[in-house]
Amino acid sequence: MISKEIRKGLRGLFKDSSGLMAVIGFLILAFYVVVAIFAPFISPYNPTQPSGPSLLPPTISHIMGTDNLGYDIFSRLVWGTRMAFAIALIATAIAAVVGIPVGLLVGYIGGKIDRVVTMIMDSIYAFPGLILAIAIAAMLGPGLLNIAFSIAVVYIPTYYRVIRSQVSTVKSELYVDGARAIGARTSIIIGSYVFPNVLPSTIVIFSMNLADSIMTEAGLSFLGLGIAPPTPDWGYDLAKGQQFILNNDWWMVLFPGLAIITIVLGFSMFAEGLDEYFNPNIGEKR
């Protein structure tokens, strides 16, 4: 996963000040959330209608220029924020809703079911994420939910693997034995004793997967498998801009690219900061 590499780099960069990292990540995300919510007020033009001459370089009236159809790139990016968030959140939520319960149940029960399900999940995991998403997206056709679903399939194994391995350690903890000893049903043991103890790690994966799914979505749109144009979408805009790069129309690539990079960075920093928060390295020692 790309976000893993980003996180590694960030860790080296910030070393002791993980708090600062989380704050910067949070600020970036907060910025994009505000942009998404207030898109109608922020964008100067209708993003799906021409608002000036085509292929206009950045000027005062079009601060990020226009594309080949004369759409205002700034407005498209602003509206595209909504799409980025929507797909990322829906995809990650689907992956979590499937991956977490399956991981909990299979991890706790163990045995043969564990071996079978883990094998299935591992084979999905072993498949290159983007290619798998492409295959599913191609099968399902365009549309927000279809895209989200094809991205979700890629990330189900991430949840499953982390949850399952955590559950298999947690279930041998004495407090789980204690719960069995007081006569708790399996459903209650999993719900009240196992799940809360694996929850912190899911929060971290959640924000990490958000970053990854934005990248994947951009990738899908880049390949023309994403949202149907002219709906504003960063990946689609980036793909389109790429055709004009030989023409020296750099603004069509630069700004969508920057948007994708910064939001992914924001999620990654936030995730890394959270991770540090939940696994404190500098603790009390005697």
Binding site: E173, Y175, G178, S192
Partner: peptide
């Protein structure tokens, strides 16, 4: 067995590990 468990209980060795940290 589950309903009978209220009649017999166990106290474990490690008090740090025998309580659910989130309860």
């Amino acid at each position: 067995l589950r309903t009978k468990r209220k009649d017999f209980q166990m106290i474990f060795q490690d008090p740090m590990a025998s309580l659910n940290p989130y309860m």
